[in-house]
Amino acid sequence: MTLVVLPNISVLISIWMETLFYGMYVVLFFSSFFVLSRTRNAIVQSWVIRLATVLMFCIATTHMAVNVRRLVEGFILPATKAETLAYLYDIHQPLNIVKQYLWVFNNVLADGIIVWRLYTLWNIQVCVLPILLLLCTTAFGLATATSLLPQIGAGNSIFVSHFSRFATTQYAISLTNNVLVTSLISGRIWYVTREVRASGYATGSDYRRAMLVVIESGAIYALTQVIQLAWYVAKFPGLYFVADSFVQIMAIVPTSVVLLVALGRTLVEESQAAASGALSEMKFTSGATKSSRTLGSMKDGYGLDRVMSGPKFKSGERPTHSQVLLPPGPAEELA
């Protein structure tokens, strides 16, 4: 039996759910903006990151305002229930097209921030494929808003065949990109922190570390896209209830990442701080120069395994005091 959802019910529930997520996003945005205005963290001092964060909030707020306008035009202005249903069934209404454009622009900013986080943990070569996938998603989204949505006749749904094929491709590319970026970020976090955990300088509880990995990698956003694509392919009408909420979640996740980086509470930064604390307890015979070099390499993002990988001795060679990282003393103590 096919589940049938009336458009007046789906619109009301969808906007109500979006309002809940928007309320959470407002608190998160102003908190992050306050932190960004005061932080000295060099990673998030770029005006590009701050501008992207502000633009995402403006787009999410505009999307909320468009839905409120739809409530007025759909439930207050029509004189009869039949006119209300006719308006809500007409998905190529100008406000629906505006919402599609807002989704595209917000997706560019949100995925761009996640790719930026990938770049700060890896390098630009790793980001090439995610950037290309992001451009493809943007092209499909703009084509949908510009040519496909206006061609859908009144009474048709978003599951109509020619629109469905195009939208499925768009969602699939976006999901692939987010799963790829999430996996790369999570893998980098695991790589950088594994030596620190093994040395006994783990930061926080296992639950807290798991939560930080989920937030920092953008896994929540990837999960919502899995649900979105699965429900769309299955033509499940429940998608109408949560479709508008995706726009707010799309903004919440990257803003959370920026806030964590600004506060210095990411798992990578905390692990490097713990490793730096461990290394600061050691004494080097070469003085402050070697110590500052070692700690500096940790601040630059290198794993503890690179710092502790050497020195290596030849067979029968007698190591010096500086090579074994011990304080200076009589030669007999090293024998």
Rank of each mutant, 00 (worst) to 15 (best):
T285P: 04
P319E: 10
L259T: 00
G264Q: 05
S271A: 13
G301R: 04
A273R: 13
L279A: 09
L263F: 07
S276N: 05
T266F: 02
P254Y: 03
K312V: 15
D244K: 00
V307G: 07
G301H: 05
P311N: 10
E317S: 12
E270Y: 03
A275P: 08
A275I: 07
P311V: 13
A262R: 02
F241A: 05
K235E: 15
L295C: 10
V261M: 06
F313R: 08
E317W: 06
S276E: 15
F236M: 10
V253I: 08
S309D: 14
L260T: 00
L260E: 06
R293P: 01
A278G: 14
L267K: 03
G310V: 12
S315Y: 09
L267Y: 04
T320C: 03
Q272K: 05
Y302F: 13
V247F: 08
S291E: 14
D300I: 08
V307E: 14
S292L: 11
G301P: 05
S256L: 13
S291Q: 14
L259F: 10
Q323T: 03
L239K: 02
S297E: 14
A273D: 14
Y302P: 02
P237C: 08
T289I: 10
S297W: 10
H321Q: 08
R318I: 14
T294H: 03
G287A: 06
G296M: 08
F284K: 00
P237R: 02
A243D: 15
L304Q: 10
S292M: 08
A288S: 12
A243R: 01
V258G: 00
G303C: 04
L304F: 12
G238Q: 09
L259I: 01
S315K: 09
L304E: 12
V258C: 02
K299C: 06
T255W: 00
A288R: 04
F246E: 15
V258F: 04
M250I: 06
G277Q: 07
G287S: 07
G238S: 05
M282F: 11
T294Q: 05
L263Q: 07
G238C: 05
F236R: 01
P319M: 06
K283Q: 14
S271D: 06
Y240K: 02
P237N: 02
K290Y: 10
A262H: 02
V307M: 11
V253A: 15
I249E: 08
D305C: 05
S286W: 00
L239H: 01
G316V: 04
D244M: 02
K235Y: 04
L295D: 11
S256V: 02
Y302T: 14
V247K: 03
S256Q: 07
P254R: 01
Y302R: 12
S276W: 01
M308G: 02
A273V: 12
F313P: 11
I249V: 13
M308N: 09
K312N: 11
L279Q: 07
G238T: 03
V247A: 11
R306M: 14
L295Y: 04
F236V: 10
A275K: 03
E317Q: 14
A273Q: 14
M250G: 13
T255I: 14
Q248I: 15
T320V: 00
A275G: 11
G287Q: 07
P254M: 05
L304P: 12
S292A: 09
T289Q: 11
G303Y: 04
G310S: 11
V307C: 07
K299P: 03
K235S: 13
